[in-house]
Write a protein that binds this DNA or RNA. Structure first.
Lengths: 304, 304
DNA sequence: GCAATTATGTTGACTGAGTCAACTATATAA
DNA sequence: TTATATAGTTGACTCAGTCAACATAATTGC
């Protein structure tokens, strides 16, 4: 805990300086930081009223009013009077304002690009991943949308790694589970039949937020395996989307049914299966992972 | 590239607000943000001269002088006169200053702790990983030290994932390499003999910065495998430290020699092997990864 | 060895960022 | 219809932060 706090404080200090240096580079005499942020926010939300900006940027009402007035003087924005509510003064960019914003935006982009120039492609990707994950962890409700896509190179093994970590923590399964995960994903990679099988990754703003595998068990049976959703991506319907992708694929390929095996303790997963039409057909006890654990077999009949 | 820049700008905006909110929470009437940062920096570096602080914090000389004078008035610091250089005025904390700093530090810690409270253990760990990686990527010379340790749960598979990504990018080896990596690590986990084999991870401020495996080939021969160093951790001697760990282990266990197989294109790795006494004893061409690649077998005789 | 230059820190004078409270005007609730 | 809340504006103020001039000490070049 202490080292965790220390690491975060170190980063906070570092990043404060880093952002400060970058801002100094892109700002010029046209506008200061507060004005740049304001102009950016107006451009993003226009038409927008002052109270919204005030809340979003966390600045004083009076200060905001004056800045906006200054923008109006410079011919960057207009303030008319609200129709529904005559107290409000919806702010809009003028053409001149749009131009100024465009220039600022471009300078800021190139300041960031300059920073990135030093990094190779993998490192750039790593950086985006790291920052996006951090943001999702710090602000779970960040408005980011996800897509379902095939795995990129390395992501199948990453699933093994992440599942091991997540379940080692929550349920105390250690090396034994890690070994099984590694073998399962390795076998999938080796034996993968693209016509009948699939792996799908939920991509949340570029980072792997969850994944699922569907393998061919023969006899018209598909098996859904290794479903997981990252903690930082919960409550976004990613589990459901992954399971639905499997079901659609299995249906399209003409499977008769999908089976899956899960642990009884994994409540969230079980709810997803129930929501998507699966039914628990048997329970059994495994001893692979040290302590005995109760497992369940579920299935979904695909009467297409 | 464009989405990369956009992702980073989004994070910058987010984090600026986040830090702002947190600072507002821990600051009180005793001191403002600049003063808190200054006091922190003095506490960290004392005795320290003004010019150092000025460079580190990036603030104006005059402003700094005045703040320091204010600190002296409040009895937080003393300024004597430098011995070697009489122009300088080394700044030191007084007991009172140390107390004030301690309180501020504690409030800041608890502000961070409050933020972390929402997160589970895995998420906290993920957050530290993400932030530390980001920092290392943005500031490759960040003064952080590494240690060599056994892998944590999930890290063996993570090695497979990272190697696949790194080499897919740099040398165009895709799924084929990924499959081999996954199988190799899975087999290691299954057959691991702790008395004769090992996996070591380089831990740079808590994140995996590289790894290496040593397996028993029988007949007094150990094989060094899967050496890699993360791009964000280069130029810190991590590769050498990992290889040396292998050699020490092999020597201790009474192996006669260590062999390894590597690609001819992997220059950095080859230099590490050379530096640590390995010699290339044969070359051969493999066809596993699509295009033919030239490989080399190296060995180190352990005459203990 | 001395003048010119450079570095460290202080001080005066100033700007403008940001705050606070009072105020107008409109909308909503009782 | 009156009381209360909300949107935005304005006056008055503070103090964070900047800039240039200055005193003093060290370093460099001849």
């Amino acid at each position: 805990m202490d080292t965790t706090i220390e690491a975060i404080r170190t980063f906070n200090r570092f990043f404060t300086r880093h952002v400060g240096a970058m801002n100094a580079r892109f700002l010029d005499t046209d506008a200061n930081l507060a004005e740049a942020r304001l102009l950016f926010e107006i451009a993003r939300q226009e038409p927008v009223q002052a109270s919204t900006l005030q809340a979003d940027l966390g600045i004083d009402r009076g200060y905001l009013s004056r800045m906006t007035a200054r923008f109006e003087d410079r011919g960057w924005v207009t303030r008319d009077h609200g129709e529904a509510d005559a107290r409000t003064r919806p702010i809009r960019l003028t053409e001149a304002g749009r131009t100024v914003f465009g220039q600022m935006d471009e300078r800021q982009r190139s300041a960031v690009a300059h920073d990135l120039g030093r990094l190779g492609p993998v490192e750039q990707e790593d950086l985006v991943q790291a920052l996006t994950r951090a943001q999702l962890l710090l602000d779970p409700d960040a408005p980011m949308s996800f897509t379902i896509r095939p795995p990129r190179v390395g992501e199948v093994s990453q699933v093994a790694a992440r599942q091991s970590i997540l379940y080692a923590e929550s349920h105390g399964w250690g090396r034994a589970l890690e070994t099984v995960e590694a073998e399962t994903t390795a076998a999938f990679l080796r034996q993968f039949n693209p016509d009948r099988e699939g792996c799908w990754v939920a991509d949340l703003a570029g980072v792997m937020a969850g994944a699922v595998f569907l393998t061919d068990e023969g006899g018209g049976v598909a098996r859904l395996r290794l479903l997981h959703v990252e903690p930082f991506a919960r409550r976004r319907g990613i589990g459901d989307a992954l399971v639905r992708t499997c079901i659609d694929f299995a249906r399209e390929k003409g499977y008769d049914r999908i089976t899956l095996w899960t642990h009884t303790v994994l409540d969230a997963a079980r709810r997803i299966y129930t929501r998507n039409g699966f039914e628990c057909i048997s329970t059994d006890v495994h001893h692979e992972f040290g302590e005995p654990v109760q497992g369940e077999t579920w299935q979904l009949i695909l009467n297409s």
